[in-house]
Amino acid sequence: MSLVNCKGLSKSYGDKKALSQVDITLNAGSPIALVGPNGAGKTTLFSLLCGYITPSSGEVSLLGHKPGSAELLGRIASLPQDASLDPNLDVLTQLTFFGTLQGYNRKNAQAEAIRVLNLVDLADSAKQKPRALSHGMAKRVAIAQALMGSPELVLLDEPTAGLDPANAKKIRELVKSLAGTTTFIISSHNLDELEKLCDQVLYLEHGQLRQSVSMAESQHDDYITLTMQGCESASLIEAVLKLADISSIEERQANQFLIKHNSAESYAIEISLLTLFKERNWQYKAILKGRTLEEKLFS
């Protein structure tokens, strides 16, 4: 059974089409990225999956059930980007209340609240009110709320937006640690972050699904992305083009180059590059198999 299945999914607001004929089949597993420009339809898609709104046409199901149905209670969770906590109640009280809404008795709801606070490393803040928390801590509490009941699918809308690097790192590590039991669909503009977290990337534009990119497949194509510490671009390009099995090299941005090769063994190209760098005393920052997510989506 598919985790998410959308067929011809469309949503209109008057004359404006927010989504148009979207077909998606997603299976449980590694985190999935949802990207696209503002107004692309990402929030509308999330709202349809959660059952907050109904489609204008088409079909959508999660774990074989209609969004918002009683059969999905506790199995699906979401965290809107602008989710906020009640400023008048301490963290533990709020999470315990949400647990009771899922059907837990008060004792078990409180135990579940403490469990998820431990997941986000905030058990020591259980008795604090939201005003006493930093922005990053409040975001982690909101994520803890979404994790109550160990849902099978969690939708996260911009989970690290506006966070300092330390808190963003904690959230990435949390998603990675739970990926074996919970599937995350993450909407974000941070392509570098999504590239580290996700195996599949869905790209929406003007309400239509334009691309579905597999990051695992991209690591096995005939490209290498090379990032240098700093070098004279013309000299590097000239030298790399002289190596065996190199088809082309282009500077895509400052000190970052996309190399196309025709070698059956990409590691042979990497060895040639490292040998060249040693001979020329050039310093590199990264050699990446395949193309970056940005390159895959927008080249």
Rank of each mutant, 00 (worst) to 15 (best):
L122I: 08
S187G: 12
L122T: 07
D90S: 07
H220D: 04
A83H: 12
F98M: 13
L95C: 06
I259C: 01
P159L: 13
K170L: 13
V240Y: 00
N255M: 12
A77C: 07
G74E: 07
L73A: 13
Q81S: 09
G99P: 02
E71H: 14
T54M: 11
N262Q: 09
P130V: 11
G41A: 03
F298G: 10
A33F: 02
G180W: 00
H65V: 04
L274A: 04
A132H: 06
G136Q: 10
A109S: 15
A286V: 01
S30N: 14
L194V: 06
R75W: 06
L34K: 03
Y223Q: 05
I143F: 08
A109G: 13
V201L: 04
T160D: 08
K66T: 11
S150L: 10
G99N: 03
E173N: 12
Q128N: 15
L241V: 02
K42Y: 00
H220F: 05
Q200R: 15
Q128V: 06
K129S: 13
A40Q: 06
G290M: 12
V35N: 04
V116C: 05
N118F: 02
L178Q: 11
Y223W: 02
P80Y: 01
N5C: 14
L34F: 00
A286C: 02
Q102M: 13
K285W: 09
P151N: 09
S235F: 04
D82H: 15
T292H: 08
S299P: 05
A113V: 06
A144T: 09
E294H: 13
S84L: 08
I53R: 01
D121R: 15
P87D: 02
A144M: 06
Y223C: 07
E251A: 13
L19M: 04
S12N: 12
S78M: 09
K7Y: 09
H220V: 10
Q219Y: 15
T100C: 14
I224V: 14
L101E: 09
K129R: 15
S272D: 02
G39T: 11
E158Q: 07
A179S: 14
I269W: 00
Q253W: 11
L85M: 12
V4F: 01
S233Y: 03
V213R: 09
K129L: 10
A33T: 01
A83L: 05
E112F: 05
G36K: 04
I271M: 12
C50K: 07
V60P: 06
S187N: 14
S247W: 00
T160E: 06
N281W: 05
P37R: 13
L147G: 10
E59N: 12
C198K: 03
L226N: 01
L48H: 11
L34C: 02
Q211I: 04
I271A: 15
I259P: 00
G14W: 03
K242L: 00
L204P: 02
I271P: 03
P37S: 12
Y52H: 09
G51C: 04
Q283D: 10
R131E: 07
Q94V: 11
V4E: 04
S84C: 08
T96Q: 13
